[in-house]
Simulated assay, not measured.
Amino acid sequence: MCLLTLFITDIAKNHQVRKKYTIQLGENELVLKELDLLNEGANVYKLIGPVLVKQDLAEANANVSKRIEYISAELKRLDGTLQDLEEKQNSEKDAIFKLQQRIQSFQAGKAKA
């Protein structure tokens, strides 16, 4: 039963991380849309620590696009991990259920004797 609890904990952690990445993906997609609205010569600044640093619009677009690509890949990886954990959890549940049935049938047989 401890293994089943471990799967539940891992699944919950996976959901938390996935939620964080989903929020970041939405924010970055919004930034990309905003960057697309700008004219070619527009000034773009990137916050690095407490300082705003001027950045080329094409570079900013590329950075945000790569970030979106990375986050999407992480979400896909997390989905695969989550599916694997859920399959293992279901397998453990089935094994526990079968074991419980065997115990009950054993006890029923013992009661008849």
Rank of each mutant, 00 (worst) to 15 (best):
N61G: 11
Y45L: 04
K33Q: 10
G41H: 13
V51C: 10
N14C: 13
N28D: 03
I71D: 02
Q16E: 13
N14S: 14
S65D: 08
E29I: 02
L32S: 04
E27A: 02
A62M: 09
G26S: 08
E27M: 01
Q24V: 00
D56H: 03
E40A: 12
G41D: 14
L37V: 12
G26K: 06
A60M: 12
V44A: 00
A58S: 15
E34D: 14
L38G: 09
A58Y: 09
I23F: 02
Q55I: 15
L37T: 13
E69G: 09
Y45V: 05
N61S: 12
L37Q: 12
V17I: 11
E69H: 11
E59K: 14
N14R: 05
V53R: 05
E29N: 11
V44C: 07
L32F: 04
N28Q: 04
E74I: 08
Q16S: 11
Y70G: 08
N39A: 14
K54G: 07
E74V: 07
Q16P: 03
V44Q: 01
N63D: 12
H15R: 10
Y70K: 12
V53A: 02
L38F: 10
K54Y: 13
N39C: 09
I48L: 08
Q24K: 04
L37E: 15
L32A: 06
I48T: 11
L38S: 10
N43C: 07
L57F: 06
E34W: 06
L25H: 01
V31N: 03
N43V: 11
Y45H: 06
N28W: 00
L47A: 00
K20M: 04
N39I: 09
A42I: 07
L47Q: 01
A62T: 15
N61T: 14
L38A: 07
T22I: 01
N63P: 05
K54M: 15
L30P: 09
P50L: 08
K20E: 14
G26L: 03
Y45E: 04
L38N: 09
E69Q: 14
N14L: 05
R67K: 15
V51R: 11
A62D: 13
A73F: 01
I68E: 06
Y45I: 03
A73C: 09
E74P: 02
D36Y: 01
S65A: 12
K54A: 11
N43R: 07
G49K: 03
Y21D: 09
L37D: 14
N39Y: 10
K20C: 08
L30T: 15
K46G: 06
V44H: 04
K19T: 15
H15I: 07
G41S: 15
N61Q: 15
E40S: 11
L47T: 01
E59V: 15
V64D: 00
N14P: 05
I68Q: 07
G41R: 13
A60F: 09
L52N: 06
Y70V: 08
T22G: 08
V51Y: 06
N63S: 14
G49V: 03
I48V: 15
T22P: 01
V44Y: 02
I71C: 04
S65C: 06
L32W: 02
I23E: 07
A60N: 06
N63E: 14
I23N: 03
K19A: 15
N43G: 05
S72N: 13
Q55G: 10
E40N: 09
E40Q: 13
P50W: 13
I23K: 11
G41Q: 14
Q16L: 06
N63F: 04
